[in-house]
Design a protein around this nucleic acid. Structure first.
Lengths: 201, 201
DNA sequence: GCAATTACGCAACACAAGTTTCGTATTCGG
DNA sequence: CCGAATACGAAACTTGTGTTGCGTAATTGC
């Protein structure tokens, strides 16, 4: 079952992704030119399009390979675990936001990737699978804390994670406010402790 | 201090926005062509670019004019008020998501607008001003509830609103999950009541 | 070795966003 | 009425994405 025809040059993938990463982080998404990548990589444009059908796909591939697989830590202290996890997400978001050398509160490359997921069904599906994987890890963490009595029995874990992750994305993508460890701590405190004067009433 | 030269034809703005709205909601952002809008409106392309310097600006203008100014209701029941407010935000998001006739969990036009805000400093600034206005109204609502004793005195109002609005945006833009009134109720319950087994400990 | 299959490079092309140039049309201030 | 300032229309142009056609190279199955 070996593939029939001439095999692809695997060095091309490596070289192209490296060059594209340099361009996108130096000049931003708009500064990433397919023609320039092809020229710098010494390949024809058709060779690029054989691997990544659009510029969006190439950009997603570039960013995807930098995303360290966020491993989750379970120390038994749900508050600390959540803060650590959110800090990893925030770091990834800040990396993407910094791409392009912007200074202001721009969402940078992160905003373009959201649009890419909206434009192409396959990118959207891929992204949702990634988020589902992450979500499952976080839900498992929350579930363990619930079982051992740290969290309420009638907890809505899905909503809790939406609240935490959503607040980070909202600030980066929409309001442009900063996200750092201090914010993650405020966020977890607020979500865990609630807002009512007299809860469970 | 009347402007010097020939005045702009105000009918053009109206006609162009109407045509652009029809195109963007029927065929999505990619199906919005400047050339086609100009042709259908019976004006030259330069006339469009005099008013909206990029396609992104035109798209933002189209969507902005449909956004009903979300008025906030203060019934004295913070839970009900928050649910109502979130439902209005969700309705606006669902409208944008529906644009383009997609079916799947795509973010539709909403994703493109996020990218537009990331690409153009002025659009980003405008958007942040809008969100700041909305945020201020929500914060005032929360503050009143806090003063009358419904909410905790040491509440972090900024984070609370990020949690609520952020979860909605996160689902629409990132995970593609649905947002409706039932979800808004789960969200408010979770945020208000907290997650800890024994809060204030 | 030979046919089928796939990859590659090259060049031309289609298409849309955005720009430039230039001639003409309005409006205001004097 | 005249000149400055701005708007409009038409057309050519630039740039970048993405496509197509074709000749050539590499690999597999036979």
């Amino acid at each position: 079952m070996t593939p029939r025809g001439r095999p692809r040059d695997t060095q091309v993938d490596e070289r192209v992704l490296r060059i594209a990463a340099a361009l996108i982080f130096e000049r931003g998404y708009a500064g990433l030119s397919i023609d320039e990548v092809a020229e710098q990589a010494g390949v024809a444009k058709t060779t690029l399009y054989r691997r990544w059908p659009t510029k969006d796909h190439l950009a997603v591939a570039v960013v995807a390979r930098l995303q360290a697989d966020d491993e989750i830590t379970d120390t038994g202290d749900i508050r600390a675990d959540l803060v650590n996890y959110l800090e990893k997400i925030a770091a990834a978001l800040n990396r993407m936001r910094a791409a392009g050398g912007r200074e202001g509160p721009s969402a940078g490359v992160a905003g373009e990737l959201v649009a890419a997921a909206a434009r192409h069904e396959d990118i959207g599906r891929l992204a949702r699978e990634q988020y589902a994987r992450r979500n499952a890890m976080a839900l498992a963490l929350i579930e363990r804390a619930r079982v051992r009595g740290e969290l309420r029995a009638d907890l809505d874990a899905e909503v809790l994670f939406d609240q935490l992750a959503g607040a980070l994305y909202y600030r980066v993508l929409i309001t442009g406010a900063p996200v750092d460890r201090a914010y993650a701590e405020r966020l977890v405190s607020s979500a865990l402790e609630g807002s009512l004067t007299c809860p469970r009433s």
